[in-house]
Structures are given as C-alpha cells and as structure tokens.
Design a protein around this nucleic acid. Structure first.
Lengths: 229, 229
DNA sequence: AAAATAGTGTCTGTCAGACATTATTAG
DNA sequence: CTAATAATGTCTGACAGACACTATTTT
C-alpha cells in the first residue's frame, strides 16, 4: 500500500443565529502553530471512529452535549481539505463538518470559546477561513430547498422566528406575508402546537414544531428569480 | 499531534451517458483485497498533491487524458469516507470525486476498465457501492439547478442531445417542447453555433456550445412539483 | 409525396412578488 | 382607544405542464 500517511482531523463549522445575525463557534488556540489565533473547533479522528462519530463527539464536547442530540440541530459533512501546506506540522487532512444549532450560550470550559458574527471573522488558523466560507455557503444554499432553517430554532418557534433565521443567514429582507404563506402551505414543514404564548406586546403568535418534511418543493430562492431586461 | 495515521486515497465516480443510459467507469482489481472485483478507479494522494490534483491525475490516467481538460467534463469532490473497517489493510480514508464526461470509448491499457450501466452495478470493492450511490445522487441533484448536464455532451450538441442526458440521468421522460423552451430561454446556457448538420433524416438541428451560465434559476425539477390532494 | 426529426405556439394552473386589511393582545 | 404584533386576502406576472401545429430535410 503506497502513499503517504496523514493525520486526519475533523473541523466543525458550528453556526447559530443570535441577535438576528449568523454566528460561528470559534475557539482560541492554546498551542502552536497559530497559538492564540481563533480557529474552528475540531480534533483528530480516533482509532475506532468514523468521521461522523468524531464530529458528533467534538460537537458535544464543545457545546456541553446539550446540542448534539437528534432532535435539535443538524450535522453534515462539508468535505475534505488536504492542501499539502495547510498544516506546518506535516500532512494533515481535515474533514469539515457543518452543524446548525438553536441559540445557545457561549460554552464555558478550559478553553476560550465563543460565537462570533460571521462577518467579523477573518484570519483564522490553518485554512479555516476557507472551510468556514464553504460551510456558510452550504447553509445558505440548503435553506433554499430544505426545511433546515428550523434547525436554528428551538423546539417550539413562531413563523417570525423562522423568518428571522432566513433573513439572518441570507442577509436579506423577506416579506412576512409571502413568507407565512410559503412555509405554512408547505405540507409537513410546520406542525402547530397547542402551547399559548403570553406576555407579548401584540397578538400572540402561533407556535410550531418542526414537521417531517425535509425538502422544499418548489424551493424558496434567495434572489427573486432572474431579472429581466 | 495525537491521532492515528491514515493512508489517503481518491476514488473517482466517472459518469457518462452512453446509449441513453448512465454509465460509470469501473476497473477490475488485480490485487488483494477484493482481487478481481470491480471497483471505482482511484489511487493514493502523493506527497505534494492536493486532493483535486490527485483526482485530476487519476482521471487523466484512466481515460487517456483526453477528458481531464478544462473545456470538457467536470470534476468535483463528493466527500470523505473513513469507516474504520472499510479497508481490511488498515486505516484508509478515501475522498470521493465525481467526474462527468462526454461519451468516450472504454479505456485501453494494462488494467481491465469499462463503462457499465449504473443499474447493473452492485458488489463493488470496499465501500464503493456507497460512494457510487452518493455520486449518482449528486449528479441527479445538480442537473436540477445547474447547467452541468452539458458536461455530458461533446463540444457541440443539439437540444435533443441535452434532453437525452437529462432523461438518462433522471430516468424520466421530458416533454421536448417544454424542455426546448426552458433551456433556450435560460440566458447563457446554450450558445448557438454556425455549424450545419448534414446527413440526418429529418430537419437538421441547431448546434449549440456551452454558455457561461452555471446555475439554473429557477431550477428544473425532477418531480413535477408537489402532488396535491 | 411520405416519413422523420426539429422547432414554435397556445392554453391553463400554480405560485411568488407586491401590497392592504383584519385580528388579537397589552397598556 | 392606541400601539404593537400576528395573520389573512387580493391582484398580477412569471413560468411549468399539457398539448397541436409548422418547418426542413432525406428517401
């Protein structure tokens, strides 16, 4: 079996929506290389692990395990990154994973970790700027043709909550009336709940849970179709 | 740097349309494990290579290099596969790549290689059945919202050629009239050429080249929208 | 002329974008 | 009652699905 040997790591692009802006979880590196630089959280694949196992383990470790469960959130592979010089220590292949989480507090623990607004993030360690960009683009694209936006919401949420997710991820404004029509008329996207909201200022909103639907057919498009001449 | 070491390989899902059916390039293994089984073509990542370099090199090697060029065809990463037991020789991570090619003859060379219809393919070596399935699904999905179908066509092709690609990949029938309207009205998808066709039986078709457009907006959907109640 | 293939045209229903109105709460 | 937020309704244009006709070649 020819070929060089690689260390294999998993790096996580953990996205959430906080304060109507898309945030990504970063950790400050405590060791060289890139000591004290921000980086994506990640770790090496252990002996008996498949890639998804490593990703789930790291996600649980970084977020206190409350978020890696099946109901909340979403975890999917982005792809492999293996530029020959991406790690000065030697040949390291990193597999990027994308995680979408409801709003959670910044992790507390031995290493400094925080959610930062994605537009403020530059100069990450290694090639993490690239992995992050790929993760954001994947998330943006998937909101168009899947029901994945609900992964950013807590178990029960309103149509307005969901719309704010789209607006934060796409950085656009969406007409609330058309949005409501679209998401409520897509079978299986939203399931109404009996829970009542109280204490708000205006008319209390209907609460929904995620439905079984996973794809949006037809999709919801970021750009309002092709501009004509 | 903790973590186990992996050999890293690239495996190619090389698809083409031949005889109105989707085919995949397979090679018969000449050594253990899985000796004499069909497998996806691939090879190990060499010292100074990035993953895409390895994929392009292997593609050129398997298809006589006439197909790895920039104009023809398409090459993109599928993702990483690293189940702990996927290779009995030890820990091997494979990065799947998807290649779409115009119709080419079966390669000739030292090892037995051929394009086989994808519906006839089962029992590939390693986890190549899985990688192949992911590659096919990726290709099917991408025809919906990109102009990638043209990568299956030669430099000059007719609308009918292009429609046959869609029909082969999706295993559906498409109305030629609606299809013609869709693809010719998408700006930048098809560029008419001056070349005339002669020798055919009916009215000679218009020939087109690929245009600069890469995305289809709005997309063309496999399933005719949601069935209503 | 007949057969074969290429290409255009029309009708209709669905759906997204734009915009106005009604509903239900707290103070 | 007023302010605030939630939700529904209407009009219109773009576009896909269904289907019929015209155009241009070979034999």
């Amino acid at each position: 079996m020819r070929g060089n040997l690689f260390a294999v790591a998993v790096d996580l692009v953990v996205l959430t929506v906080r304060d109507d802006r898309l945030h990504v979880l970063l950790v400050r590196r405590g060791e060289r290389p890139f000591e004290s630089h921000w980086s994506l959280p990640g770790g090496f694949v252990q002996a008996d692990e498949d890639l998804g196992d490593t990703a789930a383990r790291e996600l649980a470790a970084q977020t206190g395990s409350a978020t890696g469960d099946a109901v909340s959130g979403h975890l999917e592979q982005l792809g492999g990154y293996a530029a020959p010089d991406r790690d000065p220590r030697g040949r390291v292949l990193s597999v990027g994973y994308l995680a979408l989480l409801p709003e959670v507090p910044d992790p507390v623990g031995p290493l400094q970790a925080a959610f930062l607004p994605v537009e403020d993030v530059y100069g990450l360690a290694f090639d993490h700027d690239l992995i992050l960009a790929d993760g954001i683009e994947r998330a943006r694209a998937k909101l168009e043709y899947t029901t994945l936006a609900a992964a950013f919401c807590p178990a029960e949420f309103t149509v307005t909550d969901l719309r704010r997710v789209y607006e934060a991820v796409w950085r656009t404004e969406i007409d609330p009336r058309n949005f409501q029509r679209k998401v409520t008329s897509t079978p299986g996207f939203l399931v109404p709940t009996e829970t009542r909201v109280t204490g708000g200022r205006g008319r209390p909103p209907q609460l929904f849970r995620r439905g079984p639907a996973t794809t949006l057919h037809p999709p919801m498009l970021r750009e309002p179709a092709a501009a004509l001449s």
